[in-house]
Amino acid sequence: MNPVLTLDHLNVSFATNNGEVSAVSDLSLSITPGECVGIVGESGSGKSQTFLGAMGLLANNGTATGRVVFQGQDLLTLDRAALNKIRGDRMAMIFQDAGTSLTPHMRIGDQLIEVLTTHKGHSRQAARQRVLEVMESMRIPEIEKRLTQYPHEFSGGMRQRVMIAMALVCEPDLLIADEPTTALDVTVQAQILNLFRALKRHTKSAIVLITHDLGVVAGLCDRVAVMYAGRIVEEAPVADIFAAPKHPYTQGLLKCMPRLDQLLDAELDAIPGQPPNLQNLPNGCAFAERCVNANTRCHNERPALRELSSARRAACHLLEAA
């Protein structure tokens, strides 16, 4: 099956007063129709910037190079008008903080309806009908009344549902969710995750789930890519990542997760040290500084992302030796 999205040697960098900062380096990844891919990594690992770059939503000082092929078209070569035909329609994005990601001075209904009137040429009446349908499937109560309200009249969880509804009204082929549950209470998180689960069952959309929460990935995703310092360090089917993580960073991440079957006073194994400064990345493996098994080769030579088996890739010299 042809992938819905292929990132091909994607680089994202930002021009700052202190020189160029590279947020994403040489990243390649494919997403096939209908699958759910988790992108995991800590803050600053470049997971959000990868997809903001792909959608042409970088801040003014950011540039994306490489190729972003969406259904056969390289998005990075498209002009603004051509890109606008795709984003919001066939490719939609959900943002982390729904509180600041909805226009405060527009009624919720208008913000949802404009997506359909823009992309599908619907009349306002037809668009409203479709919006009501989607909001209903998002389990938003009293939808008729809700349409005329402003974002500040919604709770955090309801705002996130609106964000998701907004991304879904055009039935996109690819849905990118950037930390959709991070800013929410735990109970609300569970409700939103249930929505995603239902979404996975009932739509044909491929879903990219950007998160730092491995628990979210375990429950939802088919495949996981782990990012560190702007690169993918490991990519595998979700069961394999949890059963047998290959990259030392992935292993470290899993050890950091609190487990119910451990003693309450048992200390979590935090990964020692800090992620590297993106302005001044080391020549070797970016994780070497924090890796207990690192050798001189790790410090001097950057490991390539190599195929371990048909579905698994990892970037680590230690795996080669083993």
């Binding site: 042409g56 939503l57 795709i86 984003r87 919001g88 994005m93 943002f95 404009e114």
Partner: peptide
């Protein structure tokens, strides 16, 4: 123009004018 909701509006594929 730096606000998150402007990014959302752009992600929706709205014309810059709108």
């Amino acid at each position: 123009l730096r606000q998150n909701y402007i990014r959302t509006a752009r992600a929706k594929g709205l014309a810059e004018r709108r």
